[in-house]
Simulated assay, not measured.
Amino acid sequence: MKSDDEEYKLYEKIYLAEADRKEKLMGRLNLPLAMIVAVLSFLSYLLSKAPPVAVTAGVYFWISYLMAVVFVLVAMAHFSQGWRVRLDDLAIPTAEDLESHRRFLITYYDGDIVEANGWFMQIMMDYYIMGATRNAKNNDRRSSQLDQCSKYVIYAVVASIIAFVPTYTSSLT
């Protein structure tokens, strides 16, 4: 019986660690979102200052500006994917639902609380195993999407700065 208790505690610990990891990853999505908004604001400012295509600076501007727009769109797609992964996470039912099921088991086993609680603990362990497994896979996907989002936000920032140079130089003349 001691082995079952140790397994239960292990799976509970893994499940809770994945839940904590999920919260940390979801919190990390705030910075790329703020960066996307900032880059979009900068791009809208640059659009109003765009040099004409007839000059060399205009060609460089539009190439780098359109690259920045594409990078922002790709970053937004990765952000969206990272955000939506949470819909696939598996959560343990509410305490009220669990207690209702435990009481059902007690009735089902004709008042044998030991037998009912044994099955209830097995059900809880199964919840922890299924939840930890699915949430770990989702957290890996979420982390991958977050990394891709951050990478494309950085690309968009660099392309935006490159687009700023022709805008700035054309305004000097």
Rank of each mutant, 00 (worst) to 15 (best):
M1E: 13
M1D: 15
K2P: 11
K2I: 13
K2L: 15
S3R: 15
S3K: 15
D4R: 15
D4N: 14
D4V: 15
D5G: 14
D5V: 14
D5Y: 14
D5W: 07
E6K: 15
E6I: 15
E7T: 13
E7V: 15
Y8I: 11
Y8F: 15
Y8T: 12
K9I: 12
Y11S: 07
Y11C: 01
E12P: 05
K13V: 07
I14P: 02
I14Q: 10
I14F: 10
E18M: 12
D20H: 11
D20W: 06
R21Y: 05
E23F: 04
L25T: 00
R28P: 01
A34I: 11
I36Y: 00
V37R: 08
L40V: 12
L43K: 02
S44A: 10
Y45V: 12
L46K: 02
L47A: 09
K49L: 11
K49G: 03
A50V: 08
A50W: 02
P51R: 06
P52A: 12
V53Q: 07
T56H: 05
A57T: 11
A57V: 07
V59E: 04
V59A: 11
W62C: 04
I63E: 04
Y65C: 04
L66M: 11
L66W: 08
A68F: 04
V69F: 00
V70L: 14
V70F: 09
F71D: 05
A75Y: 01
A75T: 00
H78I: 05
H78V: 02
F79H: 08
F79L: 09
Q81P: 00
Q81N: 11
R86Y: 07
L87Y: 04
D88C: 00
D89W: 08
A91T: 03
P93F: 05
T94F: 03
A95G: 02
E99K: 08
R102D: 03
F104W: 09
F104P: 01
L105E: 06
I106H: 08
T107N: 10
T107A: 13
Y108V: 01
Y108C: 05
D112T: 01
I113C: 03
V114T: 14
E115N: 09
E115K: 14
E115W: 09
A116S: 03
A116H: 00
G118M: 09
G118A: 13
F120V: 08
M124Q: 05
M124A: 03
M124L: 08
M124E: 01
Y127F: 14
I129W: 03
I129L: 06
M130H: 12
G131N: 01
A132E: 05
T133V: 10
R134G: 00
A136M: 12
A136L: 10
A136K: 15
K137F: 14
K137I: 13
N139S: 12
R142E: 14
S144Y: 10
S144R: 14
C149Y: 01
S150M: 06
S150W: 04
Y155L: 15
V158Q: 01
A159G: 00
A159D: 01
S160T: 01
S160R: 02
A163N: 02
V165C: 07
P166V: 10
P166K: 14
P166G: 11
T167D: 02
T169D: 10
S170N: 13
L172E: 02
